[in-house]
Amino acid sequence: MIYAENLTKHFADFVAVQGIHLDVRAGQVLALLGPNGAGKTTTVRMLTSVLRPTSGTARIAGYDVVAEAEKVRSSVGVLTEHHGLYSRMNADEYLTFYGRLYRMPEGLIEQRKRELLEQFGLGEARKKKLGEYSKGMRQKLALVRALLHNPPVLLLDEPTSAMDPESARIVRDAIRALRSDQRAVILCTHNLAEAEMLADQIAIIRRGRIFLNDVPERLKQFLLGPEEYEITLRDGAGIPVEILPLGVALSRQENGRYVFRIDQPEEKIPLLLKRLLDQQLPVLSCAPVPRSLEEAYLRAVSLHEENGNGSA
């Protein structure tokens, strides 16, 4: 659905984006992470045929971003960095305006407006002037605009910024629903927890280059090492080191809580638990130690610095 190869954009002497490769299939969400000025917006603009790539190619829903720009724009729903709402219009007029620009039949515009405004909790505010909308409402309406023409591809820039937790949840649910509905989504965000919740793929972009792109779990494993597991024993009981199977290493312990680094956890955890129980040790729990994407991201950034901004 979204395919880019060696996508590059120069503004005079400034290299905004360099050699980007992307492949997002239908039903996948890719989170594009990176600091401000990393090249996320430029990448999105190239993928929406707003900016012409200096070199490289990209296809959106099968259309070339340079040769078939209008078809690309018809196939994409974009939530831009700036919402771009007209303060003297109401939601109804605003969506009708965009529906017409996307050449939607009037009946369909009405139907989609009704559905989406209700879905995002804006049904009652549809006749209210957009200048009177709160930040969160504006954000939701901008998202409704992006979804209005039912595009197969969505490029969403910070979709939940400025939203209250309830609204953010509605939006996240909507993105999940889009994924189930076989849409391809690129999510540009600084909200790493959200990226972790929604994304099937994470791409980290810095200084115009994507230097890491993989599924979240593999990324974490690559950046933070093998997964760790915590075993808790009742009453601070101790674990004799000699009973640990090969490939299980104790990382740290504290008050009956033992953290192990385990290679091949599917195989080694049952063996470890069996040995603990054979020793009649009072095992209370065994669970993986949660590792956040934030940790992995920060590690990636420092690796990128260490490697002289090359590929990590």
Partner: peptide, 17 residues
């Protein structure tokens, strides 16, 4: 004004020539 308020970008991402 549209450029300044950022409302031009959604227009530019629409299938308008």
């Amino acid at each position: 004004g549209e450029k300044e308020r950022g409302s031009i970008e959604p227009l530019l991402t629409s299938p308008l020539a």
